[in-house]
Nucleic acid binder design. Structure first.
Length: 269
DNA sequence: TCGTAATCAGGTGT
DNA sequence: GACACCTGATTACG
């Protein structure tokens, strides 16, 4: 079993940036900067993001994860507070899910943000992405600079306390770019995160593979690299002792449609 | 036809 | 008793 505590972390140079301005770095699909109108400011932000992140590698059969503390406590606190003010969560029918023919209120709150016009389908429901907020852009760019990957969509889950949870599932939607990892940023209460191999699930699990358990700390980043989501289910189980909220942001790259193709679930306007 | 399901509820072990 | 963990449900859909 893997377990990580909220260890000491290298402090970033400019915690205040998140309060005062939107991120200025815009990256194209190759991760290069596009807008050079405020070059000096961009260099400043790039320097802010360029501190090496101390990654920890977690591997098993078909499992490939990278874990790091991306934000200092102070910055993570500020980001959490900003998101509490900015993010608009789904309500009504959008906050329900049908499983085994029964309609349930999902045991958490969800929101979807991303590039204009992006839609994403999961649990049988299609969600239209809201436009990026400044804080989400800041976090997205920090993740991009730490990982070298660009993202056009983020699914936000807010867990009010340890009663809120998410069951075992895979993020294996067809519209996800298969070569791009899913980047999961955690803010707020630390929660256990459990991964289980698809062949080790159920009463008659075909293989004896121990589940992998992590604790996702405030300000942490977990990268789920391919082919992890093909073979491993993940969940955030109930933890009744947890009293505080947690916000989780999973950054994804959704494939855009090329001319003439018409996947049912995703399109860009 | 078959596998899967971002769920809950209930049983069991610690 | 509280909690963690596991299993079954039995329907809709691709």
């Amino acid at each position: 079993m893997e377990k990580f505590a909220n260890k000491s972390q290298k402090k970033r140079s400019c915690v205040c940036g998140v309060f005062t301005r939107a991120p200025r770095i815009k990256l194209d699909t190759d991760g290069r900067m596009q807008n050079e109108e405020d070059e000096e400011a961009e260099l400043e932000v790039l320097a802010e993001f360029s501190h090496p992140v101390p990654w920890q590698k977690i591997e098993a059969q078909g499992l490939d994860l990278d874990y790091a503390l991306l934000f200092s406590k102070e910055e993570a606190d500020a980001l959490f507070k900003q998101l509490e003010e900015e993010v608009m969560y789904s309500t009504g029918e959008e906050a329900k899910v049908q499983v085994f023919g029964k309609l349930h209120n999902i045991p958490r709150r969800q929101a979807t943000y991303g590039d204009a016009g992006l839609r994403y389908t999961y649990s049988g429901r299609t969600h239209l992405a809201c436009t990026w907020t400044p804080t989400l852009e800041y976090i997205r760019d920090a993740v991009t600079n730490a990982t070298g990957h660009t993202f056009n969509f983020v699914l936000i889950n807010r867990y009010r306390d340890g009663e809120d949870h998410i069951g075992e599932h895979r993020d294996d939607e067809k519209e996800l770019d298969p070569v791009c990892p899913i980047a999961s940023v955690s803010l707020g209460a630390a929660r256990d995160f459990v991964l289980r191999h698809r062949d080790a699930r159920g009463k008659r699990g075909a293989r004896r593979l121990e589940p992998v358990k992590l604790q996702l700390a405030h300000g942490s980043l977990l990268l789920m690299n391919p082919p992890t989501n093909t073979f491993w289910y993940h969940s955030l189980p109930v933890r009744k002792k947890v009293r505080l909220p947690r916000i989780n942001l999973t950054f994804r790259r959704i494939l855009l449609i090329s001319r003439g193709e018409e996947p049912a679930n995703v399109w860009s306007l």
